[in-house]
Deep mutational scan, measured.
Amino acid sequence: LVRYRTISKIPQITLNFVDLKGDPFLASPTSDREIIAPKIKERTHNVTEKVTQVLSLGADVLPEYKLQAPRIHRWTILHYSPFKAVWDWLILLLVIYTAVFTPYSAAFLLKETEEGPPATECGYACQPLAVVDLIVDIMFIVDILINFRTTYVNANEEVVSHPGRIAVHYFKGWFLIDMVAAIPFDLLIFGSGSEELIGLLKTARLLRLVRVARKLDRYSEYGAAVLFLLMCTFALIAHWLACIWYAIGNMEQPHMDSRIGWLHNLGDQIGKPYNSSGLGGPSIKDKYVTALYFTFSSLTSVGFGNVSPNTNSEKIFSICVMLIGSLMYASIFGNVSAIIQRLYSGTARYHTQMLRVREFIRFHQIPNPLRQRLEEYFQHAWSYTNGIDMNAVLKGFPECLQADICLHLNRSLLQHCKPFRGATKGCLRALAMKFKTTHAPPGDTLVHAGDLLTALYFISRGSIEILRGDVVVAILGKNDIFGEPLNLYARPGKSNGDVRALTYCDLHKIHR
């Protein structure tokens, strides 16, 4: 019993810090008490220290592992850092350059016999395009090294910054494609005289377009951006097909006994025919423009016929181009109408809503002055909100995010209106959640004399007048207030005048 009563005193000691020596009952000389009392004092002292730490809000209350900052290894790049964003855009520009100039170089340097010394005699450094290609190869190699040090988000939505895990993730992902696209074939085969082989191998750079397509997928929600990307894709495919079309004609031209190829026909049409040795002929500019003209006309199913396939190889390629053109029509131009419709969806919704308003007016036989006010209010409210119901949009977000959005939407009023000066951010967040926005066209009466005042109004834009009878008592403008002081009276009061809008007004109100 003594032991039980001794232990039962522990909660009292913990909360009230009572010393055991003052209790005459606990001072009985028993061996059990002498053993338990020192333990009680020690526990009391420890609990006292913990309570003191909690009340003082000291940093040592938290466990040590929670006080440590997340460790980022040296030379690790955050995937959302500004440097990584700028670097990704730079790589994107280099990939676009590669997609345009690599097929052009591979096709127009394929057994090209233009006048001038061969590239091997001039030297590697004197070729501007080769120098640019070398810079692109170096940048792609540097990009691989950067990807080995860039964080990523795993399946659990955690940012991984450990170098080993980053390397394994990159090896399992895009490393092989990036490595093949970054191989400097110019340096590996330079001086061997195989410019045709170098041009063909350099087309491996186009593998990076797969990554670019995935990154550009984030802009699919913007109709104008999608339309622009589709047109660029169409032009890029036409450019690639033009390079292939020229390569076919250029390879067949020296081996044909009869002059029936499209390059021969082009030379005869523009007065620059090929001679018996295969030299001469149109310039590279004429060849490229004509090839691009043929691919565009074939892809769009126009086909004027002034550039036509004559050999079997050219006919087979033309059939493939027609098939590609039909697929592009289905996948690209078939979506253009939907994209344009999405661009004008706001206008369509406006006309639909206006039609419903006019049908309501016609069905209920609203008189002319009231009908005009109804239409003007709808037009003004639509121009202010673009038909978007803010309350319906915010309803799907958590309250903390709703408060931040409301604070942002009402920031101008909260910053410049005098009653809100000096208020804490928590108070402003709470008030912003209570605001209701209303609009009024010129001549609209917001409050009639004798109406119950259940709200306090803040003028965000425009001006109003307060009338008693036919006498203008006051004219209020931006950041002015009218209405009933909230919670100042037990019952809502009545208006002693009319409140009429002089201009288009936007008002925020808080109800009782």
Rank of each mutant, 00 (worst) to 15 (best):
L67G: 07
R71G: 07
R74N: 06
I96Y: 01
Y97D: 01
T98D: 03
T102L: 07
T102S: 01
S105N: 15
A106M: 08
A107G: 01
K111I: 03
T113P: 06
P117L: 12
G123N: 15
Y124R: 03
Y124G: 01
Y124E: 01
C126A: 01
Q127L: 05
L129P: 01
I135C: 04
I135Y: 01
V136E: 01
N154C: 09
N156I: 05
E157V: 13
E158N: 10
H162F: 08
R165C: 11
H169A: 09
Y170W: 01
Y170H: 01
K172G: 05
M179S: 12
V180S: 07
P184T: 01
F190D: 14
G193M: 04
S194H: 13
S194G: 15
E196P: 14
T203K: 01
T203F: 04
L209P: 03
R211N: 08
A213S: 04
R214Y: 05
S220I: 09
E221G: 13
Y222L: 04
G223A: 08
V226E: 14
L227K: 01
F228V: 11
M231F: 11
C232L: 08
T233C: 15
L236M: 09
I237Q: 01
A238V: 03
H239L: 01
H239M: 01
L241T: 04
A242I: 01
C243D: 01
G249W: 03
N250K: 14
E252D: 01
P254I: 10
S258A: 09
G261N: 08
G261I: 01
L266D: 01
L266W: 01
Q269V: 01
I270D: 01
G271T: 01
S277N: 15
G280C: 01
I284D: 03
Y288N: 01
T290Y: 01
A291M: 01
A291W: 01
L292I: 05
L292R: 01
F294V: 01
T295Q: 01
V302L: 01
N306E: 01
V307F: 01
S308F: 01
N310C: 01
S313P: 14
L323K: 01
S326W: 07
L327E: 02
L327Q: 02
S331I: 07
N335L: 04
S337M: 06
I339C: 06
Y344D: 08
S345Y: 14
G346N: 13
R349V: 08
T352P: 03
L355P: 01
L355N: 15
R356M: 14
R356P: 03
E359G: 03
F363A: 11
F363N: 04
H364W: 05
Q365L: 03
Q365P: 01
Q365C: 06
I366S: 01
L374C: 10
L374K: 01
E375A: 03
E375K: 11
H380L: 05
H380Y: 15
A381K: 10
S383N: 10
N386T: 05
M390H: 04
A392W: 04
A392E: 07
K395A: 12
P398V: 02
A403L: 01
A403F: 01
H408E: 06
S412G: 09
L413Q: 01
L413D: 01
Q415S: 10
P419K: 02
P419A: 09
A423M: 06
L428F: 02
R429C: 06
M433D: 01
M433V: 07
K434W: 01
F435C: 05
T437L: 12
T438L: 11
G443N: 10
